[in-house]
Protein backbone atom coordinates (compact mmCIF):
# COMPACT_ATOMS: atom_id res chain seq x y z
CA UNK A 1 0.00 0.00 0.00
CA UNK A 2 1.14 3.50 -0.74
CA UNK A 3 1.92 6.11 1.84
CA UNK A 4 -0.53 8.95 2.38
CA UNK A 5 0.10 12.65 2.58
CA UNK A 6 -1.38 13.72 5.90
CA UNK A 7 -2.22 17.28 6.80
CA UNK A 8 -2.85 18.26 10.39
CA UNK A 9 -2.87 21.38 12.50
CA UNK A 10 -0.55 20.64 15.37
CA UNK A 11 -0.42 23.14 18.21
CA UNK A 12 -1.80 25.75 15.84
CA UNK A 13 0.74 25.16 13.08
CA UNK A 14 0.16 23.43 9.77
CA UNK A 15 1.93 20.12 9.46
CA UNK A 16 2.17 18.00 6.35
CA UNK A 17 4.00 14.70 6.09
CA UNK A 18 4.06 11.34 4.40
CA UNK A 19 2.66 8.50 6.50
CA UNK A 20 3.00 4.79 5.84
CA UNK A 21 -0.22 2.81 6.16
CA UNK A 22 -0.90 1.95 9.78
CA UNK A 23 1.08 4.87 11.17
CA UNK A 24 -0.52 5.89 14.43
CA UNK A 25 -0.91 9.48 15.48
CA UNK A 26 1.61 8.74 18.25
CA UNK A 27 4.22 7.49 15.77
CA UNK A 28 3.52 10.43 13.48
CA UNK A 29 3.98 12.93 16.29
CA UNK A 30 7.13 11.31 17.63
CA UNK A 31 8.85 10.19 14.45
CA UNK A 32 7.52 12.38 11.62
CA UNK A 33 7.16 15.61 13.57
CA UNK A 34 9.74 15.12 16.33
CA UNK A 35 7.20 15.91 19.03
CA UNK A 36 8.21 13.42 21.72
CA UNK A 37 6.22 14.68 24.71
CA UNK A 38 3.53 12.04 24.12
CA UNK A 39 4.92 8.73 25.32
CA UNK A 40 4.50 5.12 24.37
CA UNK A 41 3.63 3.33 27.60
CA UNK A 42 1.62 0.44 26.24
CA UNK A 43 0.68 1.05 22.59
CA UNK A 44 -2.74 -0.41 23.30
CA UNK A 45 -4.71 2.43 24.82
CA UNK A 46 -4.59 1.33 28.45
CA UNK A 47 -2.10 3.69 30.11
CA UNK A 48 -2.77 7.24 28.92
CA UNK A 49 0.88 8.29 28.45
CA UNK A 50 0.23 9.08 24.77
CA UNK A 51 -2.89 11.18 25.35
CA UNK A 52 -3.26 14.22 23.11
CA UNK A 53 -6.23 16.41 22.20
CA UNK A 54 -7.79 15.93 18.77
CA UNK A 55 -10.50 18.43 17.81
CA UNK A 56 -11.10 19.19 21.47
CA UNK A 57 -11.32 15.60 22.69
CA UNK A 58 -8.56 13.83 24.60
CA UNK A 59 -7.60 10.57 22.88
CA UNK A 60 -4.92 7.90 23.17
CA UNK A 61 -2.81 8.75 20.12
CA UNK A 62 -1.44 5.19 19.96
CA UNK A 63 -4.84 3.94 18.78
CA UNK A 64 -5.52 6.54 16.08
CA UNK A 65 -4.38 5.69 12.53
CA UNK A 66 -3.17 9.09 11.45
CA UNK A 67 -4.63 8.86 7.94
CA UNK A 68 -8.11 8.74 9.52
CA UNK A 69 -7.85 12.23 11.02
CA UNK A 70 -6.60 14.28 8.08
CA UNK A 71 -7.33 17.95 8.69
CA UNK A 72 -7.78 17.57 12.44
CA UNK A 73 -6.52 20.03 15.03
CA UNK A 74 -4.11 18.25 17.34
CA UNK A 75 -2.86 19.67 20.62
CA UNK A 76 0.13 18.15 22.38
CA UNK A 77 1.97 19.03 25.56
CA UNK A 78 4.52 20.97 23.50
CA UNK A 79 1.80 23.54 22.79
CA UNK A 80 0.62 24.07 26.34
CA UNK A 81 3.07 26.71 27.52
CA UNK A 82 2.96 30.28 26.22
CA UNK A 83 6.50 30.37 24.88
CA UNK A 84 8.68 30.03 27.92
CA UNK A 85 5.89 30.74 30.41
CA UNK A 86 4.25 27.75 32.06
CA UNK A 87 0.49 27.43 31.81
CA UNK A 88 -1.43 27.53 35.13
CA UNK A 89 -1.71 23.73 35.09
CA UNK A 90 1.98 23.27 34.38
CA UNK A 91 2.93 25.69 37.14
CA UNK A 92 0.60 23.90 39.56
CA UNK A 93 2.22 20.55 38.71
CA UNK A 94 5.72 21.94 39.33
CA UNK A 95 4.91 23.74 42.55
CA UNK A 96 2.66 20.99 43.85
CA UNK A 97 5.30 18.25 43.41
CA UNK A 98 2.89 16.40 41.13
CA UNK A 99 5.65 14.82 39.05
CA UNK A 100 8.08 12.07 39.88
CA UNK A 101 9.45 10.02 36.99
CA UNK A 102 7.52 12.28 34.63
CA UNK A 103 6.43 9.60 32.18
CA UNK A 104 2.71 9.94 32.92
CA UNK A 105 2.92 13.74 33.15
CA UNK A 106 2.25 14.56 29.46
CA UNK A 107 -0.91 12.46 29.39
CA UNK A 108 -2.07 13.77 32.76
CA UNK A 109 -1.64 17.35 31.62
CA UNK A 110 -3.48 16.77 28.35
CA UNK A 111 -6.39 15.06 30.11
CA UNK A 112 -6.51 17.92 32.58
CA UNK A 113 -6.31 20.51 29.80
CA UNK A 114 -9.24 18.93 27.98
CA UNK A 115 -11.20 18.85 31.24
CA UNK A 116 -10.59 22.53 32.01
CA UNK A 117 -11.50 23.56 28.48
CA UNK A 118 -14.96 22.11 29.08
CA UNK A 119 -15.26 22.72 32.78
CA UNK A 120 -13.14 25.53 34.24
CA UNK A 121 -14.36 24.83 37.78
CA UNK A 122 -14.19 21.05 38.19
CA UNK A 123 -14.92 19.24 41.42
CA UNK A 124 -12.48 16.69 42.80
CA UNK A 125 -14.73 13.99 41.35
CA UNK A 126 -14.59 15.61 37.91
CA UNK A 127 -10.79 15.60 38.04
CA UNK A 128 -10.65 11.98 39.16
CA UNK A 129 -12.93 10.99 36.26
CA UNK A 130 -10.88 13.00 33.78
CA UNK A 131 -7.63 11.22 34.65
CA UNK A 132 -9.11 7.78 35.25
CA UNK A 133 -7.50 6.59 31.99
CA UNK A 134 -4.06 7.85 32.98
CA UNK A 135 -1.92 5.43 34.97
CA UNK A 136 0.72 6.71 37.38
CA UNK A 137 3.02 4.28 39.17
CA UNK A 138 4.96 6.76 41.31
CA UNK A 139 2.82 9.34 43.02
CA UNK A 140 -0.32 7.70 44.34
CA UNK A 141 -2.31 10.31 42.35
CA UNK A 142 -3.10 12.57 45.30
CA UNK A 143 -0.63 15.30 44.32
CA UNK A 144 -1.79 15.12 40.70
CA UNK A 145 -5.45 15.59 41.59
CA UNK A 146 -4.52 18.45 43.93
CA UNK A 147 -2.39 20.07 41.22
CA UNK A 148 -5.16 19.93 38.62
CA UNK A 149 -7.60 21.56 41.04
CA UNK A 150 -4.94 24.15 41.85
CA UNK A 151 -4.25 24.72 38.15
CA UNK A 152 -7.96 25.24 37.51
CA UNK A 153 -8.11 27.82 40.32
CA UNK A 154 -5.04 29.60 38.93
CA UNK A 155 -6.56 29.68 35.45
CA UNK A 156 -9.82 31.12 36.78
CA UNK A 157 -7.92 33.73 38.79
CA UNK A 158 -5.90 34.66 35.71
CA UNK A 159 -8.97 35.03 33.50
CA UNK A 160 -10.74 37.11 36.16
CA UNK A 161 -7.67 39.34 36.41
CA UNK A 162 -7.56 39.67 32.62
CA UNK A 163 -11.24 40.64 32.55
CA UNK A 164 -10.79 43.34 35.24
Amino acid sequence: MASTIVQLTVNGQDAEFLAKPGTTLLMALRENLGLTAAKRGCAQGTCGTCDVIVDGRVVPSCLIPVETIVGAAVETLEGLADGNALSPLQAAFVEGFATQCGFCTPGMLMSATALLAENPAPTRGDVVRAISGNVCRCTGYEAIVDAILDGAARARAASTAAAD
Binding site: R30, E31, G34, L35, T36, A37, A38, K39, R40, T76, L77, E78, L80, A81, L86, Q90, F93, V94, E95, F97, T99, G102, F103, T105, P106, L109
Partner: peptide, 23 residues
Protein backbone atom coordinates in the same frame (compact mmCIF):
# COMPACT_ATOMS: atom_id res chain seq x y z
CA UNK B 1 14.05 22.53 52.60
CA UNK B 2 11.42 21.49 50.04
CA UNK B 3 13.57 22.68 47.14
CA UNK B 4 11.75 22.43 43.81
CA UNK B 5 12.49 19.32 41.77
CA UNK B 6 15.22 19.99 39.22
CA UNK B 7 13.42 17.86 36.65
CA UNK B 8 9.85 19.11 37.07
CA UNK B 9 9.98 21.85 34.46
CA UNK B 10 11.21 19.45 31.80
CA UNK B 11 8.49 16.99 32.73
CA UNK B 12 5.62 19.49 32.45
CA UNK B 13 7.01 21.00 29.24
CA UNK B 14 7.42 17.59 27.62
CA UNK B 15 11.11 18.31 27.15
CA UNK B 16 12.61 15.67 29.41
CA UNK B 17 14.53 13.27 27.21
CA UNK B 18 13.99 9.58 27.92
CA UNK B 19 15.96 6.99 26.00
CA UNK B 20 13.20 6.39 23.45
CA UNK B 21 12.98 10.10 22.65
CA UNK B 22 16.28 9.76 20.81
CA UNK B 23 15.77 9.18 17.12
Amino acid sequence: TPAPRADARGHVMGQTQYFEDVH
